[in-house]
């Protein structure tokens, strides 16, 4: 359990020019109170929960994080065991590298990389629209959201997780990929909960509650598939 000073802090949405920044902030405001939208390391430092939004290209995302000197504060925050939620590009940035634009180094929090979808029969890229997420285990952030619920996706690249224990939810689009991942204090979604109606808002509400409780870890390994 974390020190209560953090748990009384604000929810902070990291501001680095991400396209969905405001949508994420609106969803948080809708289920809770308006978050602090900031790129200031001192705000990260006092956050009860930190949310990394993101859409667009991996290279732009990483360049923006670097130019705003946010890489070290994010890594330090996560390493301190504090509650973190990555959304869309905010998930992809957590892995080691991305195929997008050749070979883009990412934050390397999670083992694995980001790969492009292959277009196929009746399968267009980007993967855009509502697709189902099947939970493969339990976690506080998905409480009350049935397995098989639909979430809104817009992306051309997907995560390949080297550690299967990272996977919390799976989605199929030609391949089956981890659409929600979680380890310890970190949760990330490839889908956009802020555009996913009731279930998406529930996920934000769950994350905030979990963060304010100090990100207690779920009990055991999980539920059978």
């Amino acid at each position: 359990m974390l020190h209560s000073n953090f748990m009384n802090g604000p929810i902070v949405v990291l501001d680095y020019d991400a396209g969905n920044l405001r949508s994420v902030a609106r969803a948080v405001a809708h289920v809770d109170i308006a978050p602090v939208v900031s790129a200031d390391p001192s705000d990260i430092d006092r956050a009860a929960g930190l949310i990394l939004p993101g859409v667009g290209a991996a290279a732009d995302t990483m360049a923006n994080l670097r130019s705003r000197r946010l890489v070290a504060p994010i890594k330090d925050y996560i390493a301190a065991g504090r509650p973190f939620l990555g959304v869309c590009m905010g998930l992809q940035a957590l892995f080691e590298w991305s195929e997008e634009g050749g070979h883009q180094e990412c934050l390397g929090i999670f083992p694995g990389y980001i790969r492009r979808f292959e277009p196929g029969e009746g399968r267009k890229v980007p993967h855009m629209g509502w697709n189902t997420v099947e939970w493969v285990r339990e976690h506080p952030v998905i409480e009350g959201i049935p397995s098989g619920s639909a979430f809104y996706f817009v992306h051309s690249y997907y995560p390949v997780a080297d550690d299967p224990a990272l996977v919390l939810g799976e989605t199929s689009y030609g391949v089956t990929f981890p659409s929600v991942v979680a380890r310890d204090n970190v949760v990330a979604t490839q889908c956009h909960p802020e555009k996913s109606s009731t279930h998406g808002l529930r996920l934000y509400a769950n994350f905030i509650r979990w963060a304010r409780a100090g990100a207690p870890l779920p009990q055991a390994a999980g539920v059978p598939r």
């Binding site: 405001r22 969803a27 809708h30 809104y152 802020e194 555009k195 996913s196």
Partner: peptide, 8 residues
């Protein structure tokens, strides 16, 4: 609309 509606 964006403040109140959480579908695209």
């Amino acid at each position: 609309t964006a403040d109140q509606v959480f579908i695209p």
